[in-house]
Write a protein that binds this DNA or RNA. Structure first.
Lengths: 202, 202, 202, 202
DNA sequence: AATGAATGAGTATTCATTCAT
DNA sequence: GATGAATGAATACTCATTCAT
């Protein structure tokens, strides 16, 4: 499971440069300064030439995506492990709460990703899809064993996660994020006999 | 609570220019192209000089805020009217579903606001706060009359709305947005005897 | 007969800047350094900002063309005056010889134009056509009064002029240029009874 | 007079690479795209490394010259053969007309050479001189046997050829090129008793 | 000798902002 | 108050050339 799609093995020095760039980019991302930097600066910080930066990551987005990729891969792994280890509903709950922990620990990253999401560079689609598949699998399992209602798509969960990560700079972020997850989980339990649902006449 | 800080009544032509600028900006916003334009271009589009643009709206954010203001005011009004007219829980539900309708009808605006939120230019704070206060009031009322649980802040609702508007370009947006609102509302009802809540040991 | 196509009268300062830019560009052209300069430098030399340079002349070629324009206009004028004042054949001869004098006096300009011709930016077409029309008129007049053969187009004359100006850096340029003109003029006289023309069997 | 300065026989693969580079370069030249390519691209196109390109042709001009060399050699050969086979005046005429044919058949090449001429990279001097010597010899022979006037240098002929090749993109190129050659040849015949030559008083 | 990744100086171009008219 | 020309710092990106592999 390599970081790069193409299989052409990189020359040793190329590999080294690529890693240096990625490492610095991750660092900058975590510090939430990804967009405050000139693109060239990533090269300078990593100690390589501008040309090298451009060779490896032709655009700022390509770089962001590369950083993002590992993140997402880790999250997907985690989802898979939870799914294997816990009852479905519990796995979902644990995953979502863990997600908040993760975003809490990497606020800069969250902010960067949120911005990228807003800009919605299609380049991030792949990663987003992978994550979504993981969530979908978690939700589907819970639906199958009857602990979660079947009339709400995993997409809604994604959207809520989106909101959580996008709003990461609210003063009370942590508490509110937990609140959203709680609401989601409580809302997801098998349909209560009857929610007094209101018809939006508008 | 006027739109402009200073109350000095504008000269007739100044008023006209200001309106022209706002109208164009709103249009552009709705088309979702607010960030694809050079700031100057708003002047050109409105048929006024650059200087005039700057006099009225010293920054891009100031302009966005001005556009945003009316939106927000309308939404707040709506919240107030619903609060006065309906039982608390119903008012909240109607407001949230109406919000989705509104975002659905003004996708471009939604995108623009989402981006602005992500960038979180403090200039939008005022508008955001007004909206939040309206939501808070709706939630508080429902908590008071016992139809909504008291352990979750209105902030969480805001966050979810954030997510909804930020993700507006998902293919299945409408259905998913409705899903999020449903989950929220179902999760918000008075605490079920016991959600089998999982302790995130992480 | 203004320098600019559009009739919108330039603001005084704009006019001043435009003139300053043109003046410097002409100077640089005459020195044969037109292509050795960064485009920005034209701004610096003229004492205006880069933006101003770009406003007036969006490309290097646009600037060159502007310089070229005046040249061509002057040459066309000269052609017209000669046509009015002299017998047709004499007018043509005088024009061509004067052309060589002119190129001799402005070698840098010649070099610049030659390069531009080679690159053949269509922007120069207009100027080229004007000049060609002038030559065509001269030739046509001479054909009409029977001093010049009718089976050779003015285009051939243009081509020869092209060659003269393109080759301007040959060590013996002046003599050779005169030679070409002489050959042209002698070749142009009413068809000798019979040139022992050779069939190119190749 | 070999193609390369050093006579060290090339290693087989070196030879192969050199040929591949030359072949591609010629192709590109003929397509008239010699200057639209990055220098590196010649390497890529030929399927060799950048370093190899540089080893064989240290500059773009060196490469152009190498392509140009064979061209010129062929033309010179042709001139020599014509001189040996035909009466002097006929040889000259045939050569010039053949030249036009050749340029007509290789327009891309013509454009490339014209540009190189304009840029006048001394690297082309050698080839240019060879060609010029051939023309000079043709003219001199014709002068010697009295069919061509002696007061005009071969340089003038070169200059005209220059013009022909430089103007290769005129819509009516072929006809005009023929026209120039006709004028030249007619102008070159032994001086008519008296051309009503006009004194350029200027 | 061949390779192609690395290099980074060089350059064009934009665009937010100012200020003379 | 309005105008829009001028400004020039900021920045992205290329590509000729080198040199480690």
């Amino acid at each position: 499971m390599s970081t790069r799609g193409s299989d052409k093995p990189l020359r040793a020095d190329a590999q080294r440069n690529r890693q240096a760039l990625l490492a610095k980019a991750r660092e900058v991302c975590d510090a939430g300064e990804f967009f405050d930097l000139r693109f060239d600066d990533f090269a300078r910080l990593a100690g390589v030439g501008t040309g090298t930066l451009y060779r490896h990551f032709p655009t700022r987005e390509a770089l962001a995506e590369a950083v993002y990729h590992e993140e997402v891969a880790a999250l997907c792994d985690r989802a898979r492990r939870l799914r294997d280890a816990l009852p479905a509903h519990e796995a979902l709950a644990t995953f979502l709460r863990g997600m908040v922990d993760h975003l809490d620990a990497h606020q800069g990253l969250a902010r960067t990703l949120a911005t990228l999401m807003a800009t919605s560079t299609a380049a991030l689609a792949e990663g987003g899809e992978a994550l979504e598949q993981a969530v979908t699998a978690l939700v589907a399992a819970a639906v199958r064993d009857g602990t979660v209602r079947g009339d709400v798509s995993a997409g809604a969960v994604m959207m809520a996660l989106h909101g959580i990560s996008a709003a990461h700079d609210r003063p009370d972020w942590r508490a509110e994020a937990d609140g959203v997850v709680t609401l989601l989980l409580d809302g997801l339990v098998q349909p209560q006999p009857s929610t007094p649902n209101v018809s939006p006449e508008r």
